[in-house]
């Protein structure tokens, strides 16, 4: 109804910026749920995929990575730099890009069914580990078993928790958001 030309372009920019900030902050604060505190970074990546259209979801993760590479302290623990990609967690970082895109594509634009949202979030999370674990194996030069033990098994309960939370939050948040 308030159809000025500016309204069309400014809201997605602001929401994307908001998700960039949330993803950055998610790496810094640990939430004490259960025995192991979890970081919310990948949950916000999933949430970006569930809420933004595919192009914007991928764009916002791309800009986030770009900020980190350019030297702004947005990666885990306030670090940054292109060197981070060649580190053990580089695979997870890069995987956010396809993960957000895939989640956004699966969750679709119009009718948002619960099953579809769950599927999208699970697929997104799977992509993260599909990139992250081989990368970890390659950088640390360890066996598959050790890579899985260090980079996946301890995080599975947290990942399930985050998938459920991301879907619940996304469904509550959508009515508030108008592009």
């Amino acid at each position: 109804m308030n159809g000025t030309p500016m309204d069309v372009s400014i809201k997605p920019i602001i929401y994307s910026a908001l998700f960039i900030a949330l993803i950055s902050i998610g790496a810094m604060i640990a939430v004490p749920v259960g025995p192991v505190p979890i970081v919310l970074q990948n949950m916000f990546v999933l949430l970006a995929g569930l809420i933004l259209p595919p192009a914007w979801a991928a764009g916002c993760v791309a800009v986030y990575l770009l900020m980190g590479f350019a030297g702004l302290p947005v990666f885990a623990g306030g670090t940054s730099g292109i060197g981070k990609v060649f580190g053990p967690t580089g695979g997870y970082l890069l995987s956010y890009l396809p993960a957000a895109f895939l989640t956004a594509v699966i969750s679709g634009r119009a009718a948002k069914s619960l099953v579809r949202d769950c599927g999208a979030a699970i697929a997104g999370m799977a992509v993260m580990y599909m990139f992250g674990v081989p990368w970890l194996k390659w950088v640390l030069a360890v066996s598959w078993g050790k890579a899985l033990a260090a980079g996946m098994y301890p995080f599975v309960p947290g990942a399930v928790l985050k998938i459920i939370a991301a879907v619940i939050i996304a469904r509550k948040l959508r009515p508030l958001i108008r592009f």
Binding site: A17, L18, I20, A21, I25, I29, C60, V63, M67, L72
Partner: peptide, 21 residues
């Protein structure tokens, strides 16, 4: 230009979110 604006806004949102959190 859009990327630059997004970067600027994201940096602005970070302290705001931390406060809210």
């Amino acid at each position: 230009k859009r990327v630059a604006v997004m970067v600027g806004l994201a940096l602005k949102f970070m302290p705001l979110i931390l406060d809210n959190a």
